[in-house]
Simulated assay, not measured.
Amino acid sequence: MTIGLLILSLVAQPVWWFGLIYEWWTADRRIKRERRAFGSAVYSDKFEVRHFVLLSLFWGLVMSVVSFAVGMTVPIGWWVCYSVFALIAIIFGLGSRLPITIFVGTVVLYDWFDKASFSHPVMALLRQLGFSRQPVKIAVLIMLLSAVLFLLSRWLKKTGGRFASPKIFAQKRGKLIAGYPFNELLVVPTLVLIPGDFISAHLAFWPVLSLGGTHVTPLFLPILLGLHLTIFKQNPRMAFKRLAKSFLVLSILVLIGGIVALLSQPAAWIILGLAYVGYIGCLLKTRWHDRRQSFWYSKVDHGVRVLGIKPETPAAKMDIQVGDIITTCNQQPVHSETSFYEALLSDPTYCHLKIQTPEGDLKVTETAIFDGSPHEIGIVMFKD
C-alpha cells in the first residue's frame, strides 16, 4: 500500500509531465528546423523525449535509493517553493537555462521567508494543518546541490554532443556558419523526507515514518536538470565532455563544502554562494574556450563541409567526422552540394571520398551506397 501511494505521487507529479511535454515540443522544433535548413531531418527520431523518459526514471531510482538510505530531509517550505518555480520555468521555456539558479534561488528565498517577521502568522497557520516547524540545516541542501551537480555531470557526459544537430547562422559579413546547440532538460523524481505528518493529518492512509523520534513524510522532489548551450568552434562531443568533467570536480568540492557547513553554520551561505559562482564559472569557461578557437563550421569554396551524419546510412559507416571537408567524390572535385551529388551519380552504387580534416590532415574513405538513391548517403552539408 505504501509503495503504491508513493508511485501514485510520482505519476501525478505535474513538473515531470510538463517537462515531458516541453521536450516533445523541443524535439518537434528541432526536426522542423533541420528540414528547413537541409531538406530532411538529421535525426528524425525524438531523441530528446527518449532521454527525458529513460534517464529521468533511471537517475530518479538511483537518487531515491541513495536519498532514502542517508535519510535526506528537506523542509516543506523549500520543497513547495522549488517545485513551483521549477514548474513555472518549464512552462515559460526556461527549464533548461536555469536549473541551478532555481535551486540556489529557492534556498535563499526559503531562508529569507523563514526568518522574516511577517512569516510567523503564516507558519502558525501551517502548523495547524500539520506542517512541521522543525528547521532543516542549509548544509543539507548544499549537499543535495552537490548531488544535483553530479547528476548534471553524468548526464552531460552521456548525452552532450552525442546527437550533433547543426543550426545555421549568418555572420555579420554574410558568411554562413553552423553551431551545435544543446537544449535538453531532465526532471529527476527523487524520494526525500519531509518533517511532519501534514499529509497523513488529512489523508490517514498516507505513509508516515519515524526518524530519530521525529515524524517524516516521504515525497518525491522533482529535481530539475538542464543546459542550453551552443558550440561553434569545437567538436561538440569533446566540448560537453570537458564541461561534464568541470561539473564533476565542482560537485565534489560542493560536497566537501556541505560537510564543512554541517560543522559551521555561518559558513553555509559562503559555501552556497561559492558553489553558484563555480557553476557560472564552468559555463563561462566553456563559452570562452569555444570563442577563442580559430576554427569555424563555415561554408568553404574548395570543397563541402560535413555538418552532420545521419544514423543508419552509408555515411555512418565511413571514416567521416563533423567538420571534415570533402574535396573530391568519385575522383571529381566538389565545391557545392550540387556538384557533390553530381559526382555521386557518376557511379550510383559506390562512393569514394577524399577528405581534409579540420587539422589539415588528408584521408580517404569509401563505401557502397544505395543503388539509385545517392541522396540517401546520409551526409549533411550546407544547401546551395
Rank of each mutant, 00 (worst) to 15 (best):
V254G: 01
V254P: 03
V254N: 04
V254L: 04
V254T: 12
V254S: 02
L255A: 10
G257Y: 10
G257K: 06
G258W: 14
I259Y: 06
A261K: 05
L263E: 03
Q265E: 08
A267K: 08
A268I: 07
W269C: 05
I271G: 02
I271A: 02
G273K: 12
Y276L: 10
Y276E: 05
V277P: 03
G278Y: 07
Y279W: 13
Y279L: 01
G281N: 06
C282P: 09
C282E: 11
L283P: 06
L283T: 07
L283A: 04
L284A: 02
L284G: 02
K285L: 01
K285Y: 01
R287T: 03
R287I: 11
W288V: 02
H289V: 06
H289K: 11
D290M: 10
R291Y: 04
R291P: 00
R292F: 03
Y297S: 00
S298Q: 08
K299R: 09
V300S: 00
G303M: 07
R305Q: 07
R305G: 00
R305A: 00
V306I: 12
L307P: 09
G308V: 13
I309A: 03
I309E: 02
K310G: 00
T313D: 00
T313K: 13
P314A: 10
A316I: 14
A316D: 09
K317C: 00
M318G: 03
I320H: 08
Q321M: 10
V322H: 04
V322R: 08
G323S: 08
G323V: 14
D324L: 13
D324S: 11
T327D: 00
T328R: 15
C329M: 12
C329I: 14
N330S: 08
N330E: 03
S336H: 13
S336I: 14
S336E: 06
E337F: 14
T338W: 12
F340S: 05
E342L: 15
E342D: 11
A343D: 06
L344S: 04
L345N: 13
L345S: 10
S346V: 14
P348R: 04
P348G: 02
C351W: 12
L353F: 14
I355N: 03
I355R: 08
Q356D: 02
P358Q: 04
E359M: 10
G360D: 06
G360C: 06
G360R: 12
L362V: 12
L362M: 12
K363R: 15
V364S: 05
V364D: 00
T365R: 06
T365M: 06
